[in-house]
Nucleic acid binder design. Structure first.
Lengths: 264, 264
DNA sequence: CCAGTTGGTCCAAATAATGAACCGTTAGGA
DNA sequence: TCCTAACGGTTCATTATTTGGACCAACTGG
């Protein structure tokens, strides 16, 4: 692994749950010594990717981040266009919805979300949280439409048991992937949070690669047949809208799968 | 310069004007050979900071960027809180307004902006664009309140002549800085764009460091005495609001300077 | 068909990263 | 009060990585 990769990996330890981390903690998390870790952190600070609290000495994400995000969003308004489609989807299903994008083999991260505010029993999405591929509807649908090399790489690493219902065996997941490819929708029943049912549809970039997913999360109790039909229709519409807005197109195989599934 | 710094510098060549750059162009811009540049770009792609168009082979900002931006914005909602203050400022002055933050010695970058839509003759802000310290009202006010080491570092590099009215002599700027510290407001008359008058106020972080600026840009023709008084009042209010929202506070010296200036 | 461009690769030489041991400081406990 | 253990940070001989000239294949315009 190159020096740059080791250095940038440090940024991944920062999250909404631990937005500030000190030197020793970084060293422990990364498995490197304090000297190397300190030099790496200093370089990230110099580049504006981190900034250091002068009193607590802890490191947090720096000013270069929002700048680069603006450049990307202005060039390629992924977030804005996703939000428009999410608005429509939310209006149709009245449940928590979100769009997430592939972050290498590490997982998916939520790019945009609308939280259900109407029901008492609702699902929250933690934005910028890394979602595991094997335990979420979004992750499963991305895996199902990813190329073999990517899938093998993800499955090669140990799959964490997040809830009692998480599938951690590659063989079981392979069967799930076939189901997903047949229906065009990903599903996860309590694999990430107990009692939460997730349904997802894949997003494709201009190269035809599956680069993310749009998903609805709902307590299983509210998932009537009628609600599910509305969710499936909304998801395929949203996935198409977002994919087109991103310059891609839905593969014919996926469109056919959707037609068949919704026809039932 | 460390390998990481050289690698991350590549990201700075991407902007709203050239959102995609190829290998040879990167090598030319960075002054390094193609072999090293290629390895660096590949590492950034692996880390998700860049992605490569498989047909044109050009590199653009990757999916890791929006994720980190969300983490930062969720931890520390700089953009959201700035936007609230900008809304009020815009309502008061009815001219193009923006908030920009320090990006090391490279310049300032716009974090949020509201463009004037009402007038025929209006000023546009290019978000995520790097604003030079010596040629903008925002840059000048930051320089005036920066520590000597930072100011010397910026002035040590050659100052580009952007318009005919740009001041490029350090001695002239030093006088400007004294004016700014006396009034509490930065000013630039056509230094960045001919005919545009900029007025700015400094923002301070929790360490008391000047970390950005809020500014109003207007055609000089609309800058009546009355309009200017309204702008100065709006700017000091907005600067205070944003600084407080960011966990900082306006130094007493700046508050006094504002009082005196507005009292005239 | 050539000259000049593009993206990308190879490998010996040059350079930068590494980490055990170290320092100064702070915080808590006996 | 002392003692211990944590913290952030630094030093420097050892070690591993980066570097860049030369090279290749592919494409483009004359």
């Amino acid at each position: 692994m190159g020096t740059v990769a080791k250095t940038l990996k440090l940024l991944n330890y920062l999250s909404a749950f631990s937005p500030e981390i000190g030197l020793s903690e970084f060293a422990r998390l990364s498995g490197y010594d304090k000297a190397s870790t300190h030099r790496r952190l200093s370089e990230l600070v110099k580049a504006g990717f981190l900034e250091q609290d002068p009193t607590t000495k802890a490191y947090r994400l720096g000013a270069a981040i929002p700048r680069l995000a603006l450049v990307r969003e202005q060039t390629f308004p992924a977030s804005a266009s996703a939000m428009k489609a999410l608005d429509r989807l939310f209006a149709a299903v009245q449940e928590t919805v979100h769009v997430s994008i592939v972050q290498g083999t590490a997982g998916l991260s939520a790019l945009a979300h609308i939280d259900d505010q109407t029901h008492g029993n609702r699902v929250y999405i933690e934005p910028a949280d890394m979602l595991p591929y094997h335990a979420t509807a979004s992750g499963l649908v991305v895996m199902a439409y990813a190329d073999d090399a990517f899938r093998d790489q993800v499955l090669a690493e140990p799959l964490s048991q997040i809830t009692d219902d998480t599938s951690t065996q590659a063989e079981v997941l392979q069967v799930d992937f076939e189901d997903i490819r047949r229906t065009g929708f990903g599903r996860s029943e309590g694999g990430y949070e107990t009692g939460i049912y997730g349904i997802s549809a894949p997003l494709f970039d201009r190269n035809g690669t599956c680069c993310g997913a749009v998903a609805v999360a709902t307590p299983k109790s509210r998932l009537t047949e009628q609600a599910e039909a509305s969710i499936l229709a909304g998801l395929s519409q949203a996935a198409t809208d977002i994919t087109v807005a991103w310059g891609g197109s839905i593969p014919a195989a996926v469109q056919e799968a959707w037609m068949q599934t919704k026809g039932n």
